[in-house]
Design a protein around this nucleic acid. Structure first.
Lengths: 114, 114
DNA sequence: TTATTATATAAGTTTTTTATTATATAATCA
DNA sequence: TGATTATATAATAAAAAACTTATATAATAA
């Protein structure tokens, strides 16, 4: 992937955003597939507003995009973001988080947006 | 460099530490050469205790090492740290910070530890 | 239209972080 | 030894972050 050099401030902004367990895991999940808010609420043990607020921070920074589909809002990774290569580098250091979504399926936790 | 996969928590710890402008810049400086505290105090516009506290966080996490030489304490990057490859990946995204030290030399700001 | 569901925003609280000032410790120098 | 210099630690204040509950908005379903 193309190696981008940005300002210290820009990199710090990304590190601050990913320097939170919930947000880093959200980014890892979005790296594989789009997720709607209700899925993320199920994955993490925090309130829906807390998830929405994390998503807003990521969106405000341009790291993720949102798309409404009927009553659901799906979030996806913004692969055009200038710092996407940095994000990919970071995500390469953590284990795949996809199992978190698979577990929900197994447990039969019905996610309404499906 | 060998690609290491660690837990989300371990990576979050590193990102939190580097998600601060002062600490990220310190790491960039230490990546090129060891620095003593008085040099760092000159580079950043914050108090000496503030620098010491940033260094302590980095040291407590094992990211840097310290060596006393007479009355000075020199800090250096801990290249044996499990997350060193992550740190290198991150530093590759910011410009070289070496000029910050060179500027001090030019301005004639005498750093006593030399 | 009214009820329900999905999500966002507001307000407030608690926790964490980062800085400052004051003081302690450790080494060197006179 | 006493003064000076380099650095660390303690105490505290201020700012930022992250959560919760309550409420608003937007879409769909009955």
């Amino acid at each position: 992937m193309k190696q981008v050099v940005a300002s210290v401030e820009e990199v710090v902004t990304v590190l601050k955003l990913l320097g939170d367990k919930t947000r880093l895991t959200i980014m890892a999940l979005l790296d594989n597939n789009d997720c709607c808010v209700c899925e993320l609420v199920e994955v993490f043990q925090i309130s829906q507003p807390a998830i929405s607020q994390h998503l807003r921070k990521l969106k405000d920074a341009g790291l993720v995009k949102e798309t409404r589909k009927a009553q659901w809002i799906f979030y996806s990774m913004n692969k055009e973001h200038e710092m996407y290569s940095l994000i990919k580098d970071i995500l390469a250091h953590i284990p795949d988080q996809q199992e978190k979504l698979e577990e929900l399926e197994k447990k039969g936790t019905k996610i309404s947006c499906e």
